[in-house]
């Protein structure tokens, strides 16, 4: 019998676990659990999930390097793809909340920095999703692939800015997100 690699459940476990919030969201949507303004509520939840997962994906390499958690590197891709999934859902819900009125959506993207920043973050994730397959590293070459995937830092920064601008008064959430990203960025620049 072929021996399974250590922690064989890790990648599928993270991928499935990351979809649990989406399942809860779907359940709430069907049972009225999202309250009086369901599309807005779901938009907020998916946005926060996207930023949280993106931050976790950025924590993988520092965790491997600084804490010697070798397993962390194996879940990085799943976390990044989950972040992109929730970001796309977040954008789709916003579009739905605007009645798919393209003129209004374009006005938001073009004229309101709050929306522009979020949209730019989403666009930056697109090439990363497209080159997330194992073959892409080979095709692009390791150096070029690595350089391309540094786009995740501006994407995360823009997402945090979008969150900051989206909050009316209490900026605790965006501040924590920004601080976390800053620390993770610094942890990548230095090596132990």
């Amino acid at each position: 019998m072929r021996r399974l690699p250590p922690l064989a459940w890790l990648e599928p476990g993270v991928a499935l676990g990351g979809l649990v919030p989406a399942a809860f969201l779907g359940w709430d949507a069907l049972t009225g659990g999202l309250g009086a303004n369901p599309v807005k509520q779901a938009t907020h939840q998916t946005g926060q999930l996207a930023l949280m997962l993106l931050t976790l994906s950025l924590a993988c390499t520092p965790a491997r390097v600084w804490l010697r958690w070798t397993w962390a590197a194996r879940v990085r891709r799943a976390l990044g793809l989950l972040a992109a999934f929730y970001a796309a859902l977040h954008f789709g819900l916003y579009v739905r909340g605007q009645d798919v009125h393209l003129g209004r959506i374009w006005e938001d993207v073009a004229e309101r920095p709050f929306v522009t920043s979020g949209f730019a973050a989403l666009l930056l994730l697109v090439p990363l999703v497209l080159t997330s397959g194992k073959g892409s590293v080979r095709r692009l070459g390791f150096r070029r692939w690595t350089r391309l995937h540094r786009l995740v830092y501006p994407a995360a920064g823009l997402a945090a800015l979008h969150y900051w601008w989206g909050v009316k008064q209490d900026h605790t959430g965006p501040l924590l997100a920004g601080l976390g990203l800053l620390l993770l960025g610094l942890a990548r620049l230095r090596r132990p």
Binding site: K40, R104, R112, V115
Partner: peptide
């Protein structure tokens, strides 16, 4: 509003 249009509204319900 600086962050969103006021041209339309979501009537609750």
């Amino acid at each position: 509003h600086p962050r969103w249009s006021q041209a339309t509204e979501q009537r609750i319900g």
